[in-house]
């Protein structure tokens, strides 16, 4: 199972570890949950709650609503335990429930955006066409001037809080569906298959959305980091 490369970064809870390692442990965890063992529930909450809130936040307009959506999701998970058949992974199942609840909530709060569409017009260059030599010139389509090197920037600037908050800001400004894809892929560390399944996207659409999202975040970061060169 392509299960959560980000696990290693999370606190080691006994349950989540074993869930990640063997499918059999997932069965055990489910069994414990159905029996009402609180430790099984808290292990699941520790593992997924922050992600759930973050994903909910891509649907609804504020943090408080996202927390409500998360809480509703957990209740739906508990109530649906007996219906869970293990065809999808537990994680995929939980996030599908979340997607349904969050979307309903977003529609009610009319922050809804066309869900399965690509979000905007089809041609959105990853890089401003002005950056390349125009057609007809000898080096048509090649860089007029190279992108800056980031590997020579001072480390503290590149990994500083300000850089991170610029990235968060850029993600926040993306069209909803692009934001969902990049959040799941690059923040939560999901696989492409998991994202396709949770958001009901084709492989190609998932990749196009990820490409646009990443390209825009890179642009935003480039604009911010370039300020160094001006002073």
């Amino acid at each position: 199972m392509a299960f959560m490369p980000q696990l290693s970064r999370l606190p080691a809870t006994r349950y989540s570890r074993s869930v990640a390692q063997v499918g059999a442990a997932e069965v055990e965890l489910l069994e414990a949950l159905r029996e009402g063992q609180e430790s099984a529930f808290t292990a699941l909450v520790e593992e997924y709650h922050a992600s759930i809130v973050r994903v909910a936040r891509t649907y609804v307009s504020n943090r408080a609503t996202a927390e409500e959506v998360a809480q509703e999701t957990w209740l739906a998970v508990l109530n649906g335990l007996d219906r869970f058949e293990g065809r999808a992974s537990l994680k995929t199942w939980i996030f599908r429930i979340l997607a349904n609840i969050a979307q309903t909530r977003a529609q009610r709060d009319s922050r809804s955006l066309p869900f399965s569409s690509l979000g905007d017009e089809s041609s959105e260059p990853a890089v401003d066409p002005e950056r390349f030599a125009p057609a007809g010139e000898r080096w048509a389509g090649h860089w007029k001037s190279y992108p800056e090197r980031w590997d020579t920037l001072p480390e503290e600037r590149l990994v500083g809080d300000e850089t991170r908050s610029r990235i968060e800001g850029a993600i926040e400004r993306l069209p909803s569906i692009q934001r969902q894809v990049i959040t799941l892929r690059d923040i939560e560390g999901w696989s492409a298959e998991e994202v396709c399944s949770a958001l009901e996207l084709s492989e190609t659409n998932q990749r196009v959305l990820l490409h646009r999202a990443r390209s825009k975040v890179r642009q935003a970061l480039e604009a911010y980091l370039a300020q160094d060169y001006e002073c």
């Binding site: 980000q6 922050a50 992600s51 973050r54 990994v159 990235i167 968060e168 990049i182 975040v217």
Partner: peptide, 9 residues
Amino acid sequence: MIALTDSLT
């Protein structure tokens, strides 16, 4: 950029 985004969790 992808590595930095990954560190937001």
